[in-house]
Design a protein around this nucleic acid. Structure first.
Ligand SMILES: [Mn+2]
Ligand SMILES: [Mn+2]
Ligand SMILES: [Mn+2]
Ligand SMILES: [Mn+2]
Lengths: 224, 224
DNA sequence: AAAAATGTTATGGTTGACCTTATTATTTCA
DNA sequence: TGAAATAATAAGGTCAACCATAACATTTTT
């Protein structure tokens, strides 16, 4: 077992596919998230297809194979374990841990991954609220809906933040939109305009493309 | 300040030069340590020269510039801090930490380096006995001589192990040739033959190319 | 002072992961 | 049902870091 070691680029493609929902992801969306041109993403997807990691149905999208899904889960595991370490032990700012862990993930041997997990007490959730796959790649897929879909008047609890850009994460951090936060939608502007939110007693504006990456649950009546 | 980010390859060349003594290192030796051909090392050294990181005097050797020395010290800092973490906190086998830390070192942002150092309590020595440069690149160059130069009858204390191959480190670990160990040279075979040592009451044979990487100090009479 | 060994440079390749600028195919929408 | 938008391919490059083989230069040894 244990593949001959994947390149950083390969791992990032697989991880991005997993983060984007791992079925029928358009190459354009993938390219955008990875910051490459669609042509480049297309080439790379062809290579990944040849290695049996993804299946590409032209005009439909890219889907991880079982092999690809496992590899992607392993990257997510490393990423999120490092996030826990950076946040809990090194006390690094929440908004920065994604990017910093994203470098470390590719340099982490299986032995280090497992020792790190043990050191951290086998956490199952990262500081951004996302589940950490276990050593076999299994994890409970995140429940909840995107904040983007919420209507005015609804009050929700933030479960996870799926954004990856440090800039976006900084904005969310400043506004207090972190896992566990209670958020009320005051207004959803028309024409795909921004949401106006109430977070921790303060108002915050949030564009839909950012709201998309905030995963929430309807707040069940659990006392105030 | 802070360079535009060096490639892993660049960092490894600089680190190897620092480990090999950082003045007048022959390209052949460098190539050997890095596992590339002399021609490849030559090309790379030309590139590093263009970037002002090394100076190459043909037929004399390669020497780090001040800029190169600083960059190399920073790589060593990251490498050795990770070694401490892997050994002390993740409880990874001594012989494996060099190689595992050697991957992590290139993926470690300055912010992580400094937070890690603080987390570890700003250690000044790694588990292999080598000094850890401070944030400015300063460190006490290792005192002591190579075990290779010792004559029969001498008793020495191991200060550091400069080997990098996991295989070699495993051998040394098995024989107990670790920092702090008391070693007596029983015999130095002629014709560059192996040393016979007494370590922890047991005999061990050690070829000169391995002994070269074991840095020792004459044991000062400090009790029996 | 040759010869041998060692070190350097020249040439020409490869590979992965990018790029741009067409061109062509498909889907979606007016 | 056509036109527009979107997606895919083709074609030709770049760049870093490797490789091998061969020619040439210097140093070391005999
Ligand atoms: Mn990454
Ligand atoms: Mn390394
Ligand atoms: Mn060339
Ligand atoms: Mn081509």
């Amino acid at each position: 077992m244990s593949l001959p070691h994947m390149s950083e680029s390969t791992e990032m493609y697989l991880k991005a596919l997993a983060e984007l929902g791992d079925r029928d992801v358009s190459i354009a969306r993938l390219a955008e998230r990875l910051g490459v041109t669609p042509v480049s993403a297309n080439e790379m997807i062809r290579r990944l297809g040849e290695q049996g990691l993804v299946a590409h149905m032209p005009y439909k999208g890219v889907t991880l194979t079982e092999k690809g899904r496992e590899a992607a889960a392993n990257v997510l595991r490393r990423q999120r374990l490092w996030e826990v370490f950076l946040y809990e032990h090194l006390k690094i700012e929440w908004a920065k841990i994604y990017e910093l862990a994203c470098s470390l993930e590719h340099a982490t041997a299986p032995e280090v991954t497992e020792a790190l997990a043990a050191f951290l007490g086998n956490p199952t959730v990262c500081p951004r609220g996302n589940p950490i796959p276990d050593a076999n790649g299994a994890f409970a897929p995140l429940e909840g809906r995107s904040l983007r879909e919420m209507a005015a008047g609804e009050t929700v609890t933030v479960r996870a933040v799926n954004a990856t850009s440090t800039e976006v994460l900084k904005y969310l951090q400043e506004k207090g939109i972190l896992p566990g936060a209670r958020v009320t939608v005051i207004e959803a502007a028309p024409l795909d305009g921004p949401l106006t939110l109430l977070v921790n007693g303060r108002e915050a504006a949030l564009g839909l493309s950012m709201a998309e990456f905030v995963i929430v649950e309807k707040t069940v009546n659990e006392g105030r």
